[in-house]
Every structure is written in structure tokens, then in C-alpha cells.
Design a protein around this nucleic acid. Structure first.
Lengths: 197, 197
DNA sequence: TTCAATTTAAACCAATTGGTCTAATTCTTT
DNA sequence: AAAGAATTAGACCAATTGGTTTAAATTGAA
């Protein structure tokens, strides 16, 4: 049965708040409120606010990895189409929630990574795990001749995944999915294998 | 002679602090300290912290626009090379300061735009002004056959400028310019005009 | 069933937050 | 030179910040 509150529930609710409103803009008290837990329980699970966000990044990252795998590990459709489906899914999610939040990890990279080395390290590790997974699919696409071989699968995967971060930044300023869709169309055109001369 | 403190000096010092450490992580008192001004003077120039950041975005944006023009409005070298020089310059600046800050406007877009519509509008306006300037140069490159015509000059300009935002996010998490350079090489390869089959 | 360990609970804390207020000073205009 | 406006100055404020503390309740193991 266990105890009354579950750590993962606190992370789920709290990190969602921070994803939408920012780390420094969300106080512990606000997290306690939506979780309906007393302060003592929070500090029982997390040694500090920074520890909370560190664990949040890891849980959010592992869930994200699961999502990526669920799209990319299949045998069909084609690698490129699987990648398209994954990113189209992400864009739709962002659209549905109002184009005002984006990705927790990308947001924290901008807000925290520059001045907090431990957090930067955790963010970087999560990013790399995702990129490796994406690169696997890109590699498949290259082997099939769908995707350009001008750059390595890893480079292309990094390029795609960093690119959506920039797209999220535009999305939040414009509060619509316009640039998201432009980014999608252009990126997949750019990485497509070109006809050999 | 005027009065003792200049509004632009306060913006210059304060916005630099916020660019490096974030909006919610920098308090008014900290800004007063590095500017060596009393609180009364700050609130004489700015009606609130939000008003301060709004004016900061506009001044930072107009200075950035000047920088962009200084690189792109020349007649030589070629349009593509002028664009390369501009972005190489930006990457170098970020490298020199330690790969931990990035662009004020991009940072604020992530930290504030999603939950602050007035600020989002100001950010978007600044972004568009810059993109128009970049698009002019891209257009020139397209006319000369240096840059792909698969997408409009405006789209390509947006793609480049949003792309560097994503690259900054990676730069901050890795605390080095590795991804910055990858982004540079790949972006200019992708937008290059391809040989016709 | 006892008992130590863990978890829950919330009052409490010093420090900081953005912002106000009043007075003194400085500037510009008449 | 005098008057009115703008600026400088910093003490002050309520609210909030992340975090500590102490005590009660709950848990799993012996």
C-alpha cells in the first residue's frame, strides 16, 4: 500500500507547472497547493527545489524517451514517415495545449543551464539519450536512401531535435503553430536525400 | 547636461544581467546595485519590472538590428558569405563569453512569452524586424543562385534565425560551442542551392 | 505486538521580492 | 531669480521566497 503521497505524482504535477510557467516563477508553495501536500512531505522526498527539478528532468526525459521509442522502433511505415509522425504528434500536442509551454527540458536549458552546471549536465544527458534514439531511425532512413548522407545520422538527429527547440521559442512568442509547421516542412525537405546529379 | 542617470545605461546593465541569469532570477535590487542607483530613480524611468524588460527588449532588439545591418547591407562579399560572417560573429561572441547566456530575446521568449501576452508581442515584433533584414540578404542570394529557391527568402530567414535559438539552448546545456558549429555548417549546407539534375 | 524508521503535518524562520511613499535635490522654463 | 516639474534618495511595506523544525501519525520488520 505504501505511504499517502507518491513521489512521481508530485513530480508529474509540479513539473507540469514549471514547464508552463518557468522554474523561478513557480514557488514550492504553489507546488504544494496543486499536489495538496504539506511542506514536510515535499522535503521528505526532495532535499531542495533544485533536487526536485533535477528529478523532474529525469522522469520527464524518460517518459519522453518512451514516447520517442513508441513511434520510431516500429518496422513500418518508413523511417522518414515514422519521424514525421513523431514530430507531427509533438506539434499537435503543443497546439492542443495552446502553444504556450513547449518542452520542459528545453525551457530549463534556457532558464537554468547557463548558470547551473549540475542541472546543465542532467539536461545534456537527457538530450543525448533522445538523440541516440532518433539517430537510429535516421540511420535506417539513410540506409534506405530516404535521408541525405551528407551528414551523419547523429548530426542529423541533433539538428532535428535542437531545431524543434528553436521552433518552440517562436511558437511561444507568436502563440500559434505557424512557425512549428514551417519548421516541420523545411526540416524534412532539407534532410531528404537529393537526386544524384 | 541633463540628470544624473541615463535610462539607456540602466537598461544596458540590467538587461545584460537578465540575459545571463534570467528574468525571474534577477531582482530589482540587484539591478540597482550594479547600476549604483537608488530605487526611486529606477521607478522614475520604469513603471514596473515588466516595463523595464519591455523597454530592454526593444533597445536590445534595435542594437541587434544595427549589427545585422552592418553585416548584411554591404555589397560584398557575396550574400551567403555575408550571412556566414554575421552568424560566425554571433557564435564567436557567445564562445568568448563562455557559452552560457545566448540571446536576451530568445531567452525571454522561452521564459516569459508563454504566460505574458504583451511581452510575447514585443518579442515577436523584434524577431520579425530582424527576419525581414535577413530575408533581404537571402533574397539576394537566391537571385544569384547561391541559395535554394525551394522556400521563400522570408521562410529561410525565419528558419535560420529560429534555428540559432535552438542552437543556443544546446550550447547552454553543453557549455561549449560544439553544437553551435554543427548548426552553422548544416544550416548553410541545407540552404545552399543544389545542382539541378 | 512492540518499536524504530519513515512519512505526514504545519507552524515558523530569515531573507528577499516587487513596489510605495515622502522628502530633498536638481533641472528647466519663465 | 523664482516657480514648477522632473529626478534622486532611501526608508519602508506587505507578500512571498526556499527552507527548518518539532511533533504526531503511519508504516514495515522483528
Amino acid at each position: 500500500m505504501g505511504y499517502k503521497y507518491q513521489k512521481e505524482d508530485i513530480i508529474a504535477l509540479g513539473s507540469e507547472l514549471i514547464r508552463k510557467n518557468g522554474y523561478h516563477n513557480v514557488g514550492i508553495n504553489e507546488i504544494l497547493k496543486i499536489c495538496a501536500i504539506p511542506k514536510g512531505s515535499f522535503y521528505n522526498f526532495f532535499s531542495s527545489k533544485e533536487d526536485f527539478i533535477a528529478q523532474s528532468i529525469e522522469l520527464y526525459g524518460s517518459k519522453n524517451l518512451d514516447l520517442i521509442r513508441s513511434f520510431l522502433e516500429a518496422k513500418e511505415p518508413s523511417p522518414t514517415q515514422r519521424l514525421r509522425n513523431l514530430y507531427q504528434y509533438m506539434l499537435n500536442i503543443n497546439d492542443q495545449e495552446g502553444c504556450n509551454a513547449g518542452c520542459l527540458i528545453n525551457n530549463l536549458s534556457i532558464e537554468l543551464a547557463g548558470m547551473n552546471a549540475p542541472i546543465a549536465k542532467i539536461i545534456d544527458a537527457q538530450f543525448q539519450e533522445m538523440v541516440v534514439e532518433i539517430a537510429r531511425c535516421v540511420q535506417e532512413g539513410q540506409d534506405l536512401g530516404e535521408i541525405t548522407q551528407t551528414f551523419s545520422a547523429l548530426y542529423i538527429a541533433e539538428y532535428i531535435h535542437a531545431g524543434i527547440g528553436g521552433a518552440f521559442s517562436r511558437m511561444k512568442a507568436q502563440n500559434n503553430r505557424t512557425y512549428l509547421d514551417k519548421w516541420f516542412a523545411m526540416t524534412f525537405e532539407f534532410i531528404a536525400a537529393k537526386a544524384v546529379v
